[in-house]
Amino acid sequence: MEQQQQQNQSAVEMALLEYKEGLGHFTEKMPDIAKKYNAFTEACFAKGKLSQKEKQMIALGISVFSQDEYCIIYHTKGCLDQGCTEDEILEAVGVTAAFGGGAAMSQAVTLVQEAMTDLSGKGSQMQQ
């Protein structure tokens, strides 16, 4: 049953699952570091002068610029979870591409769009 569920998941959803599993293993082995890292990132992404939506778009742009595929997927999901529209996400990665050139544009026109499609509920089997 589990194998069939994995086969039904997209590559994007599988990457999110791999990240979560990896983070779980790291947390088991290094609980103090993981706890402090998680507290730090939660504080960074908490609503402040910037909304959580704006912070997710910033994080997505940085992820695209640095070509971190796991973070691209994770923060595309974060953008969608915070109510970003497709146009807002594409505008944010367009700004990133203007700064980051061809490497950023290649991630914007491939992985970000694939992640938006897979994670926006269009065929997604993963529970949020």
Rank of each mutant, 00 (worst) to 15 (best):
T41C: 13
N8T: 13
E91Y: 12
E86K: 14
A43V: 00
K36H: 05
G22D: 02
K35Q: 12
S106D: 12
H75D: 02
E42N: 15
L111N: 05
E88T: 13
Q113N: 09
S10A: 05
H25W: 04
S124Y: 05
E18F: 07
C44W: 02
G123N: 06
G48L: 06
T76F: 11
G102Q: 07
K55R: 12
F45I: 01
M30I: 00
C84G: 09
D68W: 03
A115I: 00
D81M: 14
G123T: 04
L50P: 06
Y37G: 00
L23D: 04
T96M: 10
I62W: 10
V12F: 03
F26P: 01
G123R: 12
K20G: 02
H25R: 15
T41A: 06
G24W: 08
E42H: 13
L90S: 03
S63C: 09
Q4Y: 13
P31G: 01
Q107Y: 09
Q52H: 06
A92I: 06
A34W: 05
D81S: 10
E18T: 11
A46C: 03
C71S: 13
G123A: 10
Q127R: 14
S106C: 06
E91P: 14
V12N: 03
K77D: 13
L119H: 11
L50H: 13
A34L: 01
T96D: 02
Q9F: 14
F40L: 15
T27A: 15
G121W: 09
Y74N: 12
L50F: 14
D87H: 10
S51Q: 08
C44P: 00
A108E: 02
D32I: 01
V109D: 01
A104T: 03
M105C: 09
Y74M: 09
Q56L: 00
E18M: 11
D118F: 04
V95H: 14
F40K: 04
G78P: 09
A39E: 14
T41I: 14
S120N: 14
S124H: 08
T76G: 07
A92T: 09
Q9P: 03
M126Q: 13
K77A: 12
D81W: 10
Q5R: 07
G24S: 09
K122F: 04
F45H: 11
I73L: 08
M57P: 11
S51W: 11
A39L: 05
M14G: 01
A43C: 00
V112G: 05
M126T: 12
Q3L: 11
C79Y: 05
Q6W: 13
Y19V: 04
S66W: 07
N8K: 15
A43T: 00
T85Y: 03
P31F: 04
M126R: 15
E69S: 08
S51T: 15
K122Y: 02
Y19K: 09
M30C: 11
T27R: 15
V95T: 02
F40P: 03
L80S: 02
S63N: 06
V112W: 06
S106H: 11
Y70V: 10
V109Q: 02
Y70R: 12
M116L: 04
S106M: 15
E114C: 00
Q9N: 13
